[in-house]
Amino acid sequence: MNAESVSRRSMLLLALLLAAVIPWIVPNFYTFLLTKVLFLSLASASLILLAGYGGMLSLAQVAFYGVSGYIVAYLALRTGVSFLPTVILAILGATITGALFAFIAVRTSGLYFLMMTLALGQIAFFGAFQWARITGGYDGMVGIPAPVVFGQVMASGKAAYYFTLVPVLAGFYWLHRMVRSPFGVALQGIRDGDVRMAALGFNVKVHRFLAIVFSAMIAGAAGVLSTYFYGMMSPQLVSLGAAVTLLFISLLGGIARFEGALIGALVFVLLEDYASVFTARYNTIIGLFFILVVLFFPKGIAEIFRRKKRAVL
């Protein structure tokens, strides 16, 4: 174990410790915002798996997010299905949606793939909007009861934070392991040269298929967390605007690695909240900020930390 990995490990431990105690340090409202950061970063990580490691830029993450979100909303409000089966069915729903989509979409790549994901995202949006008998249409579904875990109601504040933190950490850990596994390395190989990888005997389509399915699963988990967090689901959460926001978060943080998801979500949520206090034109400020980031750090904000590290070592 060399010095670099030791320092990296201690950094990671420090970050985990901070994540565990931060609700006890910051005011309640920031705990609320940080919870939002957590599930947004998980959704963004699902995009980074596809785009950063798989070379497949996607606007369909909101569709997976929405499918699981609406399944949670429907089961919690209209049926007596309990918490755990609800979550499993919701993530299963997102995964199946991902598999069906991947079955068709692996035939394409690049811009054509992006267009396919745009189509799926829009199908999800208009489905949510117009299939009102199931989704509540424009009104959405409200009043989803907070989940009860080990007899504790995960309603708001710290409880909601930890309820979100644990699965998000698990998700990030899984992703971290995945991209270092033979599958993950092959996926990155395919990103850099699919023809070569195919020539080496890798099944490019199967790798892409699995990447999309895993990504859908992660996005679905984020959708579950979001739905419980807000206690509601509405078509706005699966709109094109939401898809672009997710892409924006990923690019802001850095789409090449998973740290980018966390940093992007953190910066976006804080910036949106802070700027909106001062002016109704806060979207302009967020846009300007994004242009600056692209000008100075084309690989996202995460790049700042990587540079520093290189300078130290």
């Binding site: 409202f29 609320f32 939002k36 009104d139 959405g140 409200v142 807000y230 206690g231 509601m232 509405s234």
Partner: peptide, 30 residues
Amino acid sequence: PEMAIQKTQRLVEREGVQLIIGPLSGGEGM
């Protein structure tokens, strides 16, 4: 609607507001 909830959190937790006028749309209201 989800933004109405976030902004309510901000008003209540951070600014210490105990009275809120709004919101406008039905989805937000529910």
